[in-house]
Design a binder for these strands. Structure first.
Length: 435
RNA sequence: UCCAGCGUAGCUCAGGUGGUAGAGCAGGUGCCUGUUAAGCACCGGGUCGCAGGUUCGAGUCCUGCCGCUGGAGCCA
């Protein structure tokens, strides 16, 4: 029997419509993930880019081909699809024909344990592994569901530039690039441009990479990371918190519904994720400080929270915690001062549970020209570079608010990862940027 | 940038008080009709990160350098 008339199928289709295809002859193309043999029966686990499926070989005529095949060899398998509880997918292929399309030798990543240094050096191959495969498919879905949510809410995607002529939060964390002889920087936030967008289109967001030249070496930091930054005209701090809560909850519930296979590959306990529904817990900065003190931590009122403080606060809650009204002097110039207490600003951070730290930072923006100008002067912001930003308060100014959500931290939390580096295909870190 | 830890076979690691290198996996050869990172037997595989020092003798002790990992600050 030759492989001539083929019904080429993929494992995603088998997962979704396996029952209807039971007993049918199918062909899949993919790569050998692992092989096992036991006397007169042989097993081949094939990955086809959509998932993993076990193939069973009982026909002795195929044994020589099976013996020849090695891990990560490219092959085509034809056989009968059948349901079987002993197969991890619930379905398996009883092989009738096996063809090697490319023979791989000495594939470096074996099914046993590897250290992180080795795996990172082989990132281009590591992404084929089961866990990485699941994570990066979830990343894709997270981005999709965020866009889907924002689209339903009436947002338009309004792209901020990557090259920015001036710094907004201090130049020490910016990457300088040469722009035909002029100094330019890689964007570390699209926010200021989103504010221009919000006053033109009312509800906008940008979604893309941002760059921070911070010499951070922790499980929560990347030099290049992706951020979604919605900005809304006529929205107060309260309004923007609601949007953030709904966006996070919507995305997580959609992931549980549609990426259950991937969550299973990751052995993620989804019960904790099911609880993520609005409203989240909301506390003020001052209340967060009380929590820290009640836990016996030493903390000076007025300081910013570091990651030990964030963890201490979030471990008391089973859902994200929204912390609002931080002291003015630890927050940037564009945040609106709390009219009820001039020492605080109308901002919010959202701290994820399970120790994943700050995933969202946002605020109501200063909409008064004079106050904004004053604050920019206080913080030595080069006014001439920001005249366009001040213009937004000069022509049709309006209350507006926005926030930024870090995709890798969000994905790391959903997948319960040890480190954000696995939440992006090719992470850029302090001393690691290859491949 | 600072603090801490690690660097031994292709990979993951073990190698009291200094005496000249070991296991599992991967690879190779066999055996076993239902394996789940299968199992069993046998085989091949080493500049012990680099440079120097102490010593009769260093994987082991000391110094410097390099690389990696985690944490802090900063942040999403």
């Amino acid at each position: 029997m030759g492989i001539t008339e083929k019904i080429i199928i993929d494992t995603e289709k088998i997962r979704k419509e396996g029952k209807n295809l039971e007993g049918k002859q199918v062909t899949i193309r993919g790569w050998v993930w692992i092989k096992r043999s036991s006397g007169k029966i042989r097993f081949l686990v094939i990955r086809d880019g959509k998932g993993f499926i076990q193939c069973v070989i009982e026909n002795p005529d195929l044994f020589s081909t099976f013996d020849e095949i090695s891990q990560e060899s490219t092959c085509e398998v034809q056989g009968l699809l059948k349901e079987d509880k002993r197969s991890p997918l619930g379905f398996e292929i009883l092989v009738q024909n096996l063809k090697i399309l490319f023979k791989t030798e000495d594939y470096p990543i074996t099914p046993k344990e590897h250290g992180i240094d080795f795996l990172m050096d082989h990132r281009h191959l590591w992404i084929r592994s089961r866990k990485q495969f699941a994570i990066l498919r979830i990343r894709h879905s997270v981005k999709n569901y965020i866009r889907e949510f924002l689209h339903k809410e009436g947002f338009i995607e309004f792209d901020s530039p990557i090259f920015t002529p001036s710094a907004c939060e201090g130049t020490t964390t910016l990457f300088e690039v040469d722009y035909f002889g002029e100094k330019m920087y890689l964007s570390q936030s699209g926010q200021l441009y989103q504010e221009a967008g919000a006053l033109a289109f009312s509800k906008v967001y940008c979604f893309g990479p941002t760059f921070r030249a911070e010499r951070s070496k922790t499980r929560r930091h990347l030099i290049e990371f992706w951020m979604v930054e919605p900005e809304v005209a006529f929205a107060t701090l309260e309004d923007i918190i609601n949007i953030a809560e709904n966006m996070i909850s919507y995305t997580i519930q959609k992931i549980i519904e549609n990426n259950y296979y991937e969550l299973q590959l990751l052995e993620r306990n989804v019960d904790n994720l099911r609880k993520i529904t609005p409203p989240f817990y909301r506390i003020r900065y001052s209340e967060a400080v009380e929590i820290l003190k009640s836990k016996g931590l030493e903390f000076n009122f007025g300081d910013d929270f570091g990651s030990p403080e964030e963890s201490a606060i979030s471990e008391s809650f089973d859902k994200p915690v929204v912390i609002t009204h931080y002291p003015k002097n630890i927050k940037p110039f564009y945040m609106k001062i709390d009219p009820e207490n001039q020492n605080f600003v109308l901002n919010m951070d959202i701290i994820a549970p399970e120790g994943y730290g700050e995933i969202v930072g946002g605020s109501q923006r200063e909409d008064n020209y004079e106050i904004l100008l004053q604050r920019m002067k206080e913080e030595n912001i080069p006014i001439q570079d920001y005249q366009w930003y001040l213009d937004l308060r000069k022509y049709g100014s309006a209350i507006h608010s926005g926030f930024g959500l870090g995709i890798e931290r969000f994905v790391a939390w959903i997948c319960k990862l040890e480190h954000v580096r696995e939440a992006i295909p090719f992470p850029r870190m302090l001393y690691r940027y290859r491949p």
